[in-house]
Write a protein that binds this DNA or RNA. Sequence first.
DNA 1: AATTGGACCAACCGCCGCCAA
DNA 2: ATTGGCGGCGGTTGGTCCAAT
Length: 164
Amino acid sequence: MGRSPCCEKAHTNKGAWTKEEDDRLVAYIRAHGEGCWRSLPKAAGLLRCGKSCRLRWINYLRPDLKRGNFSQQEDELIIKLHSLLGNKWSLIAGRLPGRTDNEIKNYWNTHIRRKLVSRGIDPTTHRPMNEASASQQSKEESREKCPDLNLDLRINPPLQNGHE
DNA sequence: AATTGGACCAACCGCCGCCAA
DNA sequence: ATTGGCGGCGGTTGGTCCAAT
């Protein structure tokens, strides 16, 4: 038997969020902060599963989100970080203030991947298409190529926005 | 004007690691 | 030492928009 579902699916909404649901979620988190996602929906009066609330908040409702087009600098940074970290979107997002892992993942898949391919660069290995091998070595090389990048990755405490 | 195919993006699914019991 | 619940992550899907035909 698999693990039990994270919530009572029969009593939860799915799909796009309504304005009212957004308002409820924002109001609740402003008042109580990000706490236990599992119990949040009930406490906030939402017919959603906790995971859905968390995702909506992190990817869309958080007040510190930048949104809008990616700048050229962000573009280059994502490519550099991806060459070093691979598909570790959350780590990459941690280096781009105001951007979410989901947003970066989408942006990578729709824009950057194609851009690299059109340049003849393999988006997985970050090497010219005709030398698909030696990906491990490439990581070491790119580390040397990007000494400006602070790769001392660490976990920071959550931003204290003083949930107004 | 209608159709269609691709691009984009929000949201879901399923797995994994951590940690408390 | 084991187990089950939870949060978090990456992959994927599905709906919407828009440009090309």
